[in-house]
Design a protein around this nucleic acid. Structure first.
Lengths: 236, 236
DNA sequence: ACCTGAACACCGTTCAAGT
DNA sequence: ACCTGAACACCGTTCAAGT
């Protein structure tokens, strides 16, 4: 139909064109971009290829299938977030910041939440975080058993708090603060507007519950979880 | 091609045929069955219709689209699990059993985990659980703020612990105990087999970490979370 | 009211071919 | 080695039609 030369020239003319060859990382970044902007359901081999100005089948030179590509996205977010790349001398605050960064990274990429169940700790970057968190606690004199226990509690609490944030809050996490406040207000009104006879406790605690489900009280409660666990563990 | 009469007769002859008309609940149960047996990705309108001995478009008489059907599955599992349908006098054990039942229900239907971010607390059945948990605590003399805080911590920990369980453990959750033990052993070996120079802490704590990721230590740690929160809250 | 059947615009993926 | 193009067996969903 058309000479490949002219096709290449046309591609080169496009404003957002790629420079040179494709790569695994370039594909992953484009995939994450689609997931962030449009959700995991909109991540399609064909659409991904289009965003890279390439034919769908070009993707398969770098990944055996779509699932294999998706599985790498969690690791990409994990390594991007660099949760331990901060220096906080005090142990409890170091842990607070580390897990808060983890949650922040997940909230900014809510589309990957469904992928968390896949290849979680088998990925190198996630394992490196486990290693550093455990090591930090050990170096502060905390025993191996206590360190593992605190890691388990804090990790589960962090992941669970992201799951608890409903999709509305998550989808608008990157939106400006006024929008967040508006959403929280809607949420409180959602709880508060329930029939008081059927859900008296929920209505009475509507403001506090809205804070929990919107993530506003996350850091406060995370610090509580950390302090409770540290209190039970003798350390320097 | 063929008279509708003979088609109906043929359908009636099939062994697992439906009796009479379709219903929302019947469709939901069939959908959950597919998700449990084959995973959420295998839940397809066409396959679902086939399992109900019906044409794909028959589904759309009861649900506006596939997403609306999926959104009801979380609520179905929640109401099936009847997490508060037990009598345990002591408060801390009542809470332990309630959240342990919640986790058990989710582990038995791992396919719905990706749906948790959708319409979580807007569903009536989930709200009823919140109401009962809060009410139980209030009736034991716990203040509203402390009750909400404990609910938040325990819920997030429970959901997070399910997310932490990797897909292997989850997929085989319903399998017999020997298989579970085998999986846990593999998991420990997975941690233990890492390069000791790169991941010394992970290797050293491999057995304990495997217990966390496999869910074996869930109830023990959940009770710790509950007791820590109760200790901070004055109650009878 | 409830279900069917054909059709449309999509999927992921295979296979053979181009340079 | 890297990418294209056509093709296959699927999707969810609309629309018109049957009883």
């Amino acid at each position: 139909m058309r000479s490949p030369e002219s096709a290449a020239r046309e591609r080169a003319k496009e404003p957002g064109r790629r420079a040179g060859q494709l790569s695994r990382l370039e594909i992953q970044r484009a995939a994450l971009r689609i997931v962030d902007l449009a959700g995991l359901a909109e991540l399609t081999v064909r659409r991904l290829a289009q965003s890279l100005h390439v034919t769908p089948m070009a993707i398969y030179r770098y990944f055996p299938n779509k699932a294999a590509l998706e599985a790498t996205l969690v690791d990409l977010v994990v390594s991007d977030s660099a949760v331990t790349a901060h220096d906080t001398p005090e142990l409890r605050l170091w842990l607070l910041h580390t897990f808060a960064r983890m949650r922040h990274a997940l909230c900014r990429h809510p589309g990957i939440m469904p992928l968390l169940g896949t290849a979680s700790h088998s990925s190198g970057n996630a394992l490196a975080i486990v290693e550093q968190v455990l090591g930090r606690m050990r170096s502060h004199g905390i025993g191996s058993g206590d360190a593992t226990r605190l890691f388990y509690r804090a990790t589960a609490f962090t992941l669970g708090s992201v799951v608890m944030m409903d999709s509305v809050s998550l989808a608008h996490f990157v939106k400006p603060r006024p929008v967040q406040d508006e959403l929280r207000r809607q949420q409180r009104h959602g709880f508060a507007a329930l029939p008081k006879t059927e859900f008296p406790q929920v209505v009475a605690a509507s403001a506090a519950l809205a804070d929990c489900y919107s993530g506003k009280r996350f850091e406060q409660e995370l610090l509580g979880v950390i302090d409770d666990a540290l209190q039970a563990a003798p350390h320097s």
